[in-house]
């Protein structure tokens, strides 16, 4: 029931109940008593943590990993590992070099961190049962930020040709990531682009939407389910998110759930997220239980996935 329930919701359909999708991420490491940096570099630990979290939380689906640095690090970006967080990119190879000068290559399943992720994914697929496995791709603008640094936000205004060249490259990287998650067997593949909430709608339409299309094509040609995850206050770009071409989208705690639900229904998209990750789940300022009740009531049973924001 879990897999089909989640797929139906992700595709905007009515469901008998809202599926539950914890974005467990490196919390899986915590659950099995491991440090995040050790966990993310060991396929056996990743598989153990994901399977444990899925069972512990009675999940309908779970991401294999929630780490937006895999692609960048697999292309040689400098990064720092943390014991309680995913790693963070610290060096930007395109900050002062062109793509050609930096000689960046699209990472395949054999490159960089991918072999660990692929091996972990296959182990999870072999044992997970009726729980959907999600592959999460680093979205094109977030990846472009990793490669170019904060200059990419000036480039999209002052040097759009350079920004387009970098985004086109990132689009091909995203498509390759989609192929990797497809080949692992993930039922749902999402493009996760938190930085895309930090730009104007016109910039989103000009740069982010086209850069997502190659990955979306890979997902849909395989008959799989797609989503677009965005973080932050994405209110200004919600219309663009709905039009990007994925089956659904996910948002964070800063958006108004009623507005998001109406937008999703208008465009026939699945939607999820919005549990108060910081205010309730992390800080306890709000009651997590009451927040969950509010979220379930606001989300309804058409295309809604119960998930953290």
């Amino acid at each position: 029931m879990g897999i089909q329930l989640l797929i139906d919701a992700y595709r905007g359909k009515k469901t008998p109940k809202a599926p539950w999708l914890p974005y467990a991420g490196v919390h899986c490491a915590y659950l099995i008593g491991e440090k995040a940096d050790v966990y993310l570099q060991d396929p056996d630990l990743i598989a153990k943590g994901v399977l444990f979290a899925a069972e512990r939380y009675k999940a309908d689906g779970i991401p294999l990993v929630f780490d937006l640095n895999i692609e960048g690090m697999s292309m040689g970006c400098e990064a720092k590992w943390y014991p309680d967080n995913p790693p963070a990119i610290t060096g930007h190879p395109l900050a002062d070099k062109t793509l050609a000068e930096a000689n960046l290559k699209i990472p395949t399943a054999k490159d960089g961190r991918w072999p660990v992720i692929v091996e972990a994914g296959k182990k999870v697929m072999a044992q997970k049962g009726d729980v959907a496995l999600l592959g999460l791709i680093c979205g094109p603008l977030t990846l472009a930020s990793h490669l170019r640094g904060v200059k990419i936000f000036t480039d999209v205004v002052k040097n759009p040709a350079l920004a387009k060249e970098i985004m086109d490259f990132c689009a091909q990287v995203c498509a390759e990531s989609a192929r990797i998650y497809r080949d692992i067997g993930c039922e749902i593949i999402a493009i996760v682009d938190p930085v895309a909430s930090q730009i104007k709608p016109g910039t989103f339409a000009e740069f982010v939407t086209p850069a997502c299309q190659p990955a979306i094509d890979v997902i849909h040609e395989a008959g799989l389910t797609s989503s677009f995850f965005i973080c932050g206050d994405a209110t200004k770009v919600m219309e663009e998110v709905c039009k990007i071409g994925t089956h659904g989208f996910a948002i964070d705690e800063q958006l108004n759930m009623n507005y998001v639900r109406e937008m999703a229904i208008k465009y026939g998209r699945g939607f999820g997220g919005n549990l108060k990750l910081t205010l309730a789940m992390s800080l306890g300022i709000l009651s997590p239980r009451e927040d969950a009740i509010v979220s379930l009531a606001a989300g309804g049973l058409t295309g809604f996935t119960f998930a953290p924001g």
């Binding site: 937006l68 967080n85 995913p86 963070a88 930020s145 640094g149 930085v195 932050g232």
Partner: peptide, 10 residues
């Protein structure tokens, strides 16, 4: 958290 959140990082 600029370590945890890419939007915050940039």
């Amino acid at each position: 958290d600029s370590v945890q959140c890419a939007a915050c990082q940039y």
